[in-house]
Design a protein around this nucleic acid. Structure first.
Lengths: 224, 224
DNA sequence: TTCGGTTCTGAATAGGTGTTCACTTTTTTC
DNA sequence: GAAAAAAGTGAACACCTATTCAGAACCGAA
């Protein structure tokens, strides 16, 4: 009497899992992390609360996966943008710009993933998420240093600082609130990218050029 | 039968209030914001839980005041340091360094005040706290711009970004964890200050000089 | 000393949400 | 079609901590 999952069932299970994660993501996107509670997420995914626990051992696990998920998309976007750039410095500029554009496109989600208070412990997941992105930025800084475009420096610290600057100024509580206007938004992205590049030692004139290039992304970068 | 508070009683009441706030601060300093619960704080302050409510309408109010309190000390220290500097650029450097040294001296408290998840809503208070410090930094940037030491720029955004960079790289989850060694600590402060100054447009050579000056604080800046 | 007013106490209460589990429904195998 | 196994359900439970409140202790004035 060996019960074996049929292919169809396997697919359905996977679909449910995704649905739950997607529901969590949507919930976070429009209500912040605080809104990500089991009952509402379950409702949104059209399952019962108990069902969530057949897919995720606990709320903490659910949120951790959510963070990992978003983070994965983010990392991919940053890599793509940087790889498409012509040289190391533009790659760095593109990477920073991409992060900036992304967090601006999904302010609430970004804030939730990055910093919003959550009742469960998701620090490990957040840590990993940051490490990934920071690591990528660090690679790009290193490349630019090797290419002689930047002075030698503590690249890990620099990468972290850059991300901190971008996040704080664009999605932090002090972020300007008039960024709905696309022009303002672009300005903000430019300004922040410029600051970031100068911080690591890109000369001013050169920085301006890089920023202008990078700030015109080839297409909508906002992932699902 | 007019009951009137005697001077002594007034003083005792004030002392209790301070004791409760102090207890909250200590609790936050060694256990993080999560540890700031009514019962433990009350115990630490040697009063009953109910008594806390005779001084603070709610936990949110208590924590808000705690944040305001710490913030006030912080702001004072930043002002003092900046005012003591010989010129606008060194003032900026001193301000940034002060923030860096402070958050490093009280990592847990800083993290709690700035970003740690709290179950109650203290966003208004945190916002005010950040605004104060950011405002001060902004003033210093403006002064440096007026003096012709820095290029014209969006000073509000720049100030926010600087703080973000400092916080993230020194107390954020990616902060290096080997900062117990005083030498490493000083290095980190120097590096971050240097990054920050370059970000706003201080020339590299000049920045190095400013940092070296600023990073040697006249005396222990760590407030109570 | 007495008495009205104030402050303190801490056990009981309240509210909110993650998690469980007995039961129902669906799926697979024979 | 029947039995076994898995998956789904949602009301009940559990837990945790902020908050309350009736009574005790204390204080100031007469």
């Amino acid at each position: 009497m060996v019960y074996r999952r049929t292919h169809q069932v396997v697919k359905r299970l996977a679909a449910r899992r995704s649905a739950i994660l997607a529901a969590a993501r949507e919930t976070a996107a429009d209500g912040g992390m605080a809104a990500v509670q089991i009952a509402p997420v379950a409702a949104r995914a059209k399952v019962a609360a108990g069902t969530v626990y057949r897919y995720f051992p606990s709320k903490a696990d659910l949120i951790s996966e959510l963070i990992a998920d978003v983070s994965r998309d983010e990392l991919a976007a940053v890599r793509r943008a940087a790889d498409a750039a012509p040289g190391p410095s533009s790659a760095l500029a593109a990477a920073v710009t991409t992060v900036a554009v992304h967090v601006l496109s999904h302010r609430k989600l970004a804030w939730g993933i990055l910093a919003e208070p959550v009742d469960v412990d998701v620090s490990a997941s957040r840590l990993a998420s940051r490490r990934e992105i920071a690591g990528e930025i660090e690679l790009r800084i290193e490349a630019a240093v090797r290419a002689g475009h930047l002075p030698a420096q503590d690249t890990a610290l620099a990468a972290t600082a850059l991300l901190g600057a971008v996040h704080e100024s664009l999605v932090g509580p002090l972020a300007p609130d008039n960024l709905d206007d696309p022009a303002k938004l672009r300005d903000a992205v430019q300004t922040v990218t410029l600051l970031a590049l100068r911080a690591v030692g890109v000369m001013d004139a050169r920085a301006r050029g890089l920023v202008v290039q990078a700030v015109v992304p080839p297409r909508s970068l906002v992932g699902a």
